[in-house]
Structures are given as structure tokens and as C-alpha cells.
């Protein structure tokens, strides 16, 4: 699915790398976006665990939330991604064209014994656990989730 994914912003230099792209509301595009952004983190010498776990899992969650819940898999809607990576941190924004999801609603702790056998409810938990900061910001078209990870 990589043909449709093109970084709109060529690398400006060695100090900061910017990835900006949009994908259709289709979960099959998630893997390619994740690869693109974690490659930039690799270039900026992020820790191996951050490249193998924190970035791919948190980003995968944000993208699937935007595709499935924000855009409701509507083929007419897109998901917008902007990532800025330097030697200090990754800041990545994932925006949908819908109402987003109820980001601030109190969510059940998926690690308690009564919730451990649930199939769902771990997405936002993982984003928060694997990133230093996760926040909802205003977007032009819909809901935007901004995640920040400081380089180890």
C-alpha cells in the first residue's frame, strides 16, 4: 500500500526531519506510515526500544483510532499525519475528519483483574503508557491527537 504514501515535505536537513502525509481511512496503510516515522526516529538515534515498541505501537493506536473511530472508515475521509523528529524528541500529530473519539472520558483501567480478559480498551492506555505526552489539540478538519516522545 506504499504507493499512496508520499511525504509532502522533503527532509529539510540534518537537524529536524518532518513527515507530512495523508492516508485513506483504511487500516492497511497503518504499517507503512509507522515504518516511515520510525525510520526518521532511527535516523535521529532514538533508543532501540523506542523504535521497536513505543513509536510503532502508540502510532498504530492513534492511526487506527482516527481511521476506525474518527472517520468511521469512511472512504471519503482521510487521516492526516505530521511528525517532527529531532535529536531531542518526536512530536507526531494524527488528525481525522470526524468527531474523533471521547478522548477525555474516564476509561477503565485495562490492567485490573476484572478488565484483564476484555478484548478491547487498551488503545488509549498504551498510547499514554508509551509516550511522554498525549493530548488532544484543535484541528482544522476534525480531531487531532498529538503525541510527544522524548529521545532516551
Amino acid at each position: 500500500m506504499s504507493a499512496a504514501i508520499t511525504n509532502k515535505v522533503p527532509p529539510p536537513g540534518d537537524d529536524v526531519r518532518v513527515v507530512e502525509l495523508e492516508i485513506p481511512s483504511d487500516v492497511r496503510f497503518i504499517e507503512d506510515v509507522v515504518e516511515l516515522i520510525r525510520h526518521e526516529c532511527e535516523v535521529m538515534d532514538f533508543a532501540r526500544g523506542q523504535i521497536m515498541l513505543n513509536v510503532p505501537v502508540a502510532l498504530s493506536e492513534a492511526l487506527s483510532n482516527a481511521i476506525l473511530r474518527g472517520n468511521g472508515e469512511d472512504p471519503a475521509k482521510h487521516v492526516h499525519v505530521r511528525a517532527e523528529v529531532d535529536t531531542k524528541r518526536l512530536v507526531v500529530e494524527v488528525g481525522d475528519e470526524g468527531d474523533g473519539f471521547d478522548f477525555d472520558a474516564p476509561s477503565a483501567d485495562p490492567t485490573t483483574p476484572e478488565n484483564l480478559q476484555r478484548e478491547d480498551g487498551r488503545g488509549l492506555f498504551l498510547m499514554r503508557a508509551l509516550m511522554d505526552r498525549v493530548e488532544r489539540v484543535d484541528g482544522a478538519r476534525g480531531s487531532v491527537v498529538r503525541m510527544t516522545l522524548n529521545r532516551e
Partner: peptide, 17 residues
């Protein structure tokens, strides 16, 4: 395996049950 997301974990929980 590379990475597993929350829905992948959910499937493992479901299969285990």
C-alpha cells in the same frame, strides 16, 4: 514478530478464552 497493537492483544485474549 515485530510489534503487536491493542487489537492484536485483544485477539490473543479472545482466542485464549
Amino acid at each position: 514478530t515485530g510489534y503487536i497493537d491493542s487489537s492484536g492483544l485483544g485477539v490473543l485474549v479472545s482466542l485464549s478464552k
